[in-house]
Simulated assay, not measured.
Amino acid sequence: MIPKTTSTLQDAIRLLYIFVTGAKLLENHPDGYPGHFDGKAKLHAMDFWVRYPDFLAFELLNRYERDDDDRYFDLAKAIIDDQEPDLRSNPMIRYRFGAFEDLNESLSILISKGLIITDGEKSNGKIKHYDYYVTSAAYALIETATKEHPILEWYEKRSRLVKEISGDLGGTALKDLQYKHMEYANTSLGTVIPSIKEEVKRRINQILVAND
């Protein structure tokens, strides 16, 4: 176990932003749900990039080198310049299938408030795949909360960036992408995934020197 740095309510707010920004918009769901979020593995993978700004910055640098898009480099550099790995990191444990934390308490808040509806595909009496439906109330709450509490704007912008980086990849593909970093892959099961802040700093400096 690692000491929690956030409350259950804070976790619920963070997850709601991920659900709302990461959901695929639906046009004609029979129950009128406007958004669908595909799977718990994807939720954990996107949550990891929100909680580990340095790993997100590393992936942004990968996109910069792949796409030759200066915007990704600027975003990665801003994460480091703003000291986000020190101020905003929220550690996770590496388990068998990657970064994980039991989010059931936080999810129960969202479900009890009618913001998220859960469904799933069962096999032998067990759910093997989760579907989350995002309700109109969730979209309305996020819009209102962000306007009334500007401090929450960081979560909206960050979850949208994580959604952009995630694209249409599913949870397994996102975790495979994250596993490509050796610090993540080599973390012992049951232990905290460490920061890669210094590595990201060195990589940024190398790019700056090469482009000088």
Results as ranks from 00 to 15, higher is better:
41 A>V: 14
42 K>Q: 14
42 K>E: 15
45 A>S: 14
47 D>C: 05
50 V>N: 01
50 V>L: 15
50 V>T: 05
50 V>I: 15
51 R>Q: 08
52 Y>G: 04
53 P>I: 08
53 P>N: 06
54 D>H: 08
57 A>E: 01
58 F>G: 00
59 E>H: 14
60 L>Q: 07
65 E>Y: 02
66 R>N: 08
68 D>W: 11
69 D>P: 05
70 D>E: 13
70 D>Y: 12
70 D>F: 11
71 R>I: 11
71 R>K: 13
72 Y>V: 06
72 Y>W: 14
73 F>H: 08
74 D>M: 11
75 L>A: 13
75 L>W: 09
76 A>M: 05
77 K>G: 02
79 I>H: 00
80 I>R: 00
81 D>R: 10
83 Q>K: 14
84 E>W: 07
85 P>S: 03
86 D>M: 12
88 R>E: 03
89 S>W: 03
90 N>G: 00
91 P>W: 06
92 M>A: 08
92 M>H: 04
95 Y>E: 11
95 Y>W: 13
97 F>Q: 09
97 F>P: 00
99 A>W: 00
99 A>F: 04
101 E>W: 07
102 D>I: 11
103 L>M: 13
104 N>E: 10
105 E>F: 10
106 S>D: 01
106 S>R: 06
107 L>P: 01
107 L>E: 03
109 I>D: 01
109 I>C: 08
111 I>C: 03
